[in-house]
């Protein structure tokens, strides 16, 4: 399907755009597209497609796997937990991200540079190392506990990781830069005189914010929501490391089916469903992709 259309597209393109030298057959550009798309199909789409196919074929052909998944109480619990933690973390991330992005646009040039560096820095440090640091900081023998005890705020150590709190903390920490950057990119685009202008037209500071600034920054917020939603549903590493086996989300559940219980039917079916949800989100919000990958201006 894709290949013949790509060739047809290439021909049409070669004829229409390159009127200087009419190209017979395939142009260099056609070759490049076709070659790279073939590699993508062979090395990416095929393995993914196999997962989808397996979910309908193994152990017996049909939609039996889906049927049993919908009736599986464990799966219900895991999906419920995933949705609950995802919405909580996405909500927190967007709220904090919006405020931080606002602080960024309001900050002076030096403060802004420093803050932006602080936002970008975590992106370059392995999430393994970051989670390691959280464990070191928050575990019962960790630094935070010893400080709280020394200050007399606690009598005995409490565990701040290997539970849902740790997972939420780790996920919010991971997702915050991905929320801050697109929101900030959008806010920086807003004509900074418009809120002033709104006030000269009679709006109070609150009205100027709600009626002018907020609607104009909404595309950034939507892009951030899109990015973080996709991320939060598929989180594997952070729940696995900071959840301590107590807070099992969908991705970790799938991994258990692959490595421990060897239930490929459940693994492929859940993977297919997760893929479907992700695909639907991308399909619905593909217009936000550009903003979601916008680079920050300093």
């Amino acid at each position: 399907m894709i290949l013949p259309s790509a060739i047809a597209l290439g021909r049409e393109f070669a004829g229409a755009r390159f009127q200087i030298a009419p190209v017979r057959g395939l142009s260099v550009q056609d070759g490049l597209v076709i070659g790279s798309v073939l590699v993508l199909i062979a090395c990416y789409l095929l393995p993914l497609g196999a997962v989808v196919a397996l979910s309908f074929l193994v152990p017996v052909p049909g939609i039996g796997n889906y049927w049993s998944i919908f009736q599986n109480a464990t799966v219900h619990a895991v999906v419920g937990k995933t949705l609950w933690i995802s919405s909580l973390t996405v909500g927190l991330t967007l709220l904090l991200g919006y405020i931080t992005a606002y602080a960024l646009v309001q900050a002076g040039p030096v403060a802004r540079k420093l803050m932006l560096a602080g936002v970008l820095l975590p992106l370059w440090i392995s999430v393994l190392v970051r989670n390691y640091a959280w464990i070191a900081l928050l575990s019962p023998g960790g630094i935070v506990n010893s400080i709280l005890i020394r200050w007399g705020w606690l009598d005995q150590p409490v565990s701040l990781v290997r539970n849902s709190f740790g997972v939420v903390l780790g996920m919010v920490h991971y997702m915050l830069p991905y929320a801050i950057l697109p929101i900030y990119a959008q806010m920086a685009r807003i004509d900074s005189t418009l809120p002033h202008l709104a006030r000269s037209l009679g709006a109070s500071p609150r009205q100027a914010f709600i009626r002018v600034f907020l609607p104009l920054s909404r595309p950034g917020l939507a892009a951030a929501a899109f990015l973080t939603s996709i991320m939060s549903l598929g989180f594997y590493l952070t729940p696995a490391m900071l959840g301590g086996g107590k807070t099992v989300m969908v991705a970790e559940f799938i991994s258990i089916q692959v490595t421990e219980t060897l239930r490929w039917d459940i693994a492929t079916t859940l993977s297919t469903l997760l893929l479907l949800v992700t695909g639907a989100l991308v399909w619905r919000f593909s217009h936000l992709l550009e903003l979601a990958t916008a680079k920050p201006k300093t």
């Binding site: 709104a198 000269s200 009679g202 609607p215």
Partner: peptide, 30 residues
Amino acid sequence: EARRFGVVPQGYGLFPHLTVYENIAFPLRV
């Protein structure tokens, strides 16, 4: 907002998310 001065700034400063009607109605709505 307490001055009651109308402003037409350089570049006009129309609110890009509001229609012509809503732009004009803005001072009355607030």
